[in-house]
Amino acid sequence: MSEADFDVQYIERDDRSARVLIRGLSPAFANGIRRAMIADVPTFSIDTVRFVENSSVMFDEMLGLRLGLVPLTTPIDDFEIGDEVTLALDVAGPGTAYSGDLVSSEPLVEPADKNVPLIELKEGQRVELEADAVLDTGKEHAKHQGGVSVGYRHLQRVTVEGDLGEFDEEETRILRGVIETEDGEIVPTEAFDHDLSERYPGKEVSVEDVPGAFVFHVETDGSVDVEELIVRAIGTIEERADELRTTIAV
């Protein structure tokens, strides 16, 4: 292995969304991590639904789809791919059935958002069902994707080339992402309204990509937190590489 020299810096960080600057990545590896975050980190999602009663205005299948899309918290360490957890819902109208009304048989696996309206019920309508959530990856079905709108951009270095000519018109220069100034300061472009002429008035600047530095935008649907998603994604790449190594060695 080459002695890769990684450097990680959080630019924004929240439970569910973050921007991370990673240096020392090749473009191929950066894309590998992005794809792993989308397709290879398993999360729980409702897969099979048994209806006891459904007198709502929606068909069973429509409700089943909505249930499948509700994100469920996923402690990945405690489960394996294919494991099932049963949830139940029993709501009678008038009123709305929310994702928070789902009762789980496993306290670790519960709806990550409690406020998603599943179905509005009128007087006399009732929904009673039992649902099996299964742990699987985004490869199998998009509802199992933990990462939402995961992507990356190059870190961009902004260099001041000199002053603008005395009679030059100051033009707006729109740039999105994260920039690195000459002093090595990391600034998200929101700080100056995405307009370089706002940060460097009267200057002529040049912008170039910093090689090997990627700013990842990572968001999750709540089933896992951001840091775990990134670590797990890298873990799946490692697992596959290990598998390949043992296969070749045999």
Binding site: L69, A142, E219
Partner: peptide, 12 residues
């Protein structure tokens, strides 16, 4: 429940 395009949970 989710955004058709990006998959973010909008229903909540």
């Amino acid at each position: 429940v989710r955004c058709f395009t990006c998959g973010n949970v909008v229903g909540e």
